[in-house]
């Protein structure tokens, strides 16, 4: 991961449309010398045609972002198999087989 170093770049995040359950998404960036002006620039540039309900801007130098080198550490299913229901389900079925009893909680869990 890396720390941003541009103080005059602000990334813009919006939530669009009527569905309040929608996540807030990154839409792009603006360049500005001032945080409030950055917000206004983002409003003028990124919410021209859809209704936005949330608009945030964040100075890039205050952000920490992932890089390609972080890809492996962010990949859950290959790295953290013990967190997944499939893994515990297999353990349970194997145990039931050894003990010769019916598995509990469904075959597929």
């Amino acid at each position: 991961m890396r720390r941003g170093n541009q103080t005059d770049v602000y990334d813009a995040f919006v939530k669009l449309g009527d569905d309040p359950a929608q996540p807030i998404s990154w839409v792009g960036s603006v360049r500005s010398g001032d945080p409030e002006l950055a917000w206004h620039a983002a409003k003028e540039i990124y919410t021209r045609r859809e209704d936005a309900t949330v608009l945030w801007v964040a100075q890039r130098s205050a952000m920490v972002t992932s890089g390609p080198e972080d890809l492996e550490s962010m990949r859950t299913p290959s790295r953290l198999t013990y967190r997944l229901p499939g893994k515990v389900g297999r353990r349970r079925r194997a145990r039931a087989k050894l003990a010769d009893v019916q598995p509990v909680g469904g075959a597929e869990a």
Binding site: V9, G28, S29, R31, A41, I45, R48
Partner: peptide, 16 residues
């Protein structure tokens, strides 16, 4: 205004 916004958005791509 739209066109100037297009200028900003594509300029940001170039600036990055």
């Amino acid at each position: 205004q739209d066109e100037v916004g297009h200028g900003h958005v594509t300029a940001r791509v170039a600036e990055d």
